[in-house]
Nucleic acid binder design. Structure first.
Length: 489
RNA sequence: CGGGGCGUAGCGCAGCCCGGUAGCGCAUCUGCUUUGGGAGCAGAGGGUCGCAGGUUCAAAUCCUGUCGCCCCGACCA
């Protein structure tokens, strides 16, 4: 049905690229590994930003902005941190170009005294700044978020899921006590979970990362893990308890009530434009993008149908009235009255772009006081009384939102398996993919071996599921509870 | 960095093996007819064939080099 979209069953990876292209979300840039986010893709990001930003503010955070460039020396202050990011940093070494016969060239005379790193994340520059902001317990907590771009020099990239430059938000908080910082870490994890489920309609598993998957410089990394339609997991957000690692590295202390000088406790948490890729892979089908109403730039599109000027005037009057009434309800509605495209073309186009609900109105509908409503998620069409439609529109959008979540949840449930033996594990991971719960002895060696042999990694040690104790599927050593495995993006 | 693929009109491709005036589909423009699931007909515009050398009377095609991108792996949100 949809032109130019490879079916998922034939080539999932190509399908993803096709949907991104056909839905006009993004395209490759002239720079390897970077993308141009087009208006449709960016609009989705803006709705994500809007919802997350509101949730951050509701939990007491403020936005601020820190520089793109980080002095090289900053990166080396926290040992684990630099080790984690050293291999993927863009480095600014010069400040000027000069003209030559071969076009412009870097002016060797402009070499920087201290090279600058394009931020891969901002802990270092933020903690260097926080040192100046914090003297007393009265200065705490500091609850700041920034919306920014970051650069990580990746070897292999994929539109939205992994690009060299991406957009994200990063929260950085400072607290007087460990408990407060841990609570903050968990609070923000829950914000991400709530956002994923309520806005993206994307069910997630919350958990803790193992040491090898942990953020460089964190004491504990919490995450939300989602499952894509091809059975691969996607890390959709992380929240880190940083302990006192950065406070010690950057000498950030405060005088407490008891008069003692103490290092502050820290958290950081982030979610990126990768979420757009996750959103796409959670709901979309072979006809293109499927968007949950809460994040859809256009929630309802009205397609008028006419055969001549008289009908056009009649139908447009009718459509405009519906448009007005829907808009008055706060619905993001669009009337597609372009005359240069036929209705069938518009149907297909809005479908591929993922508009949750389409309304077609033609002369017949005007005569009968009806509309034809079509749901993008189920592709069901229904002739309805016009007033009833308008009346129920908000409810229908809510239902679509709820149905998408329910369907995605069912998919995750159906794709989640428990295994007890390594043999079974290998079979399931190869044949079916998906989430697999299994016992693990807690050692990095066993984890590495499983990854080496099966390409599956421990996505997380689940927070909300406890299988009870058992023995490791590989080594037979004791295991406190099953952990979540999957192949991942 | 390994393996594979591709650079020819805005997009997608054929042509290359076997050298001989650069083609097809979509899109675009004009006109008429159309409009309830990607319209039809007629006409029109648009390309230094990634780049640089070489072979040849003649190169998109053969040879050498080079650049770039995509896909699959190793690293990662």
């Amino acid at each position: 049905m949809a032109k130019n979209i490879t079916p998922r069953s034939k080539d999932y990876s190509q399908w993803y690229l096709d949907v991104v292209r056909e839905a006009k979300m993004a395209e490759h840039s002239p720079v390897r590994g970077c993308m141009v986010i087009k208006p449709t893709g960016y609009a989705i990001w803006e709705f994500m930003q809007g919802a997350l930003d509101r949730m951050f503010k509701e939990t007491g955070h403020q936005n601020a902005y820190f520089p793109l460039f980080i002095p090289k020396s900053f990166l080396s202050k926290e040992a684990q941190h630099v080790e984690g990011f050293a291999k993927e940093c863009a480095v600014v070494t010069h400040s000027r170009l000069i003209n030559s016969e071969n076009g412009v060239e870097v002016d060797p005379a402009s070499k920087l005294e201290e090279e600058l790193i394009v931020r891969p994340t901002s802990e270092t520059i933020i903690w260097d700044t926080y040192r100046g902001w914090i003297q007393s317990y009265r200065d705490l907590p500091i609850l700041i978020n920034q919306w920014a771009n970051v650069v990580r020099w990746e070897m292999r990239t994929r539109l939205f899921l992994r690009t060299m430059e991406f957009l994200w938000q990063e929260g950085h908080t400072a607290h007087a006590t460990e408990q407060e910082a841990v609570e903050e870490t968990e609070r923000m994890l829950n914000v991400y979970r709530t956002f994923a489920e309520e806005y993206m309609a994307m069910p997630v598993i919350t958990g803790l990362k193992t040491e090898s998957e942990r953020f460089a410089g964190a004491v504990e990394t919490y995450c939300i893990e989602a499952l894509m339609q091809d059975g691969k997991a996607l890390q959709a957000g992380t929240s880190h308890f940083l302990g006192q690692n950065f406070a010690k590295a950057f000498d950030v202390t405060f005088q407490d009530r008891d008069g003692e000088l103490k290092h502050v406790w820290a958290t950081s948490w982030g979610a990126s434009t990768r979420l757009i890729g996750g959103l796409l892979m959670t709901h979309s089908d072979d006809n293109g993008l499927v968007l949950p109403p809460k994040l859809a730039p256009t929630q309802i599109v009205i397609v008028p149908i006419w055969r001549n000027d008289d009908e056009q005037a009649l139908v447009l009057d009718y459509a405009r009235a519906i448009y007005r009434e829907l808009a008055d309800k706060g619905i993001r509605v669009k009337l597609d009255d372009r005359d240069q495209y036929k209705p069938g073309w518009k149907f297909a186009q809005h479908e591929v772009e993922g508009v949750p609900l389409r309304v077609a109105v033609g002369p017949r509908d005007v005569e009968n006081g009806n509309v034809e409503a079509a749901r993008r998620d189920t592709l069901e069409k229904q002739i309805m009384n016009r007033d009833e439609f308008v009346q129920s529109a908000v409810t229908v959008l809510d239902r679509i939102q709820a149905d998408l979540l329910a369907r995605a949840r069912k998919f995750v449930d159906d794709s989640t398996r428990h295994v007890d033996t390594y043999e079974e594990f290998r079979q399931v991971i190869d044949d079916k993919g998906g989430f697999i719960y299994a016992h693990w002895d807690g050692t990095a060696e066993t984890e590495a071996r499983i990854k080496e042999e099966t390409k599956a990694t421990i996505r997380c040690i689940p927070l909300e599921y406890d299988s009870g104790a058992g023995s490791c599927m590989v080594t037979g050593k004791p295991s406190a509870k099953k952990v979540l495995f999957a192949r991942s993006y």
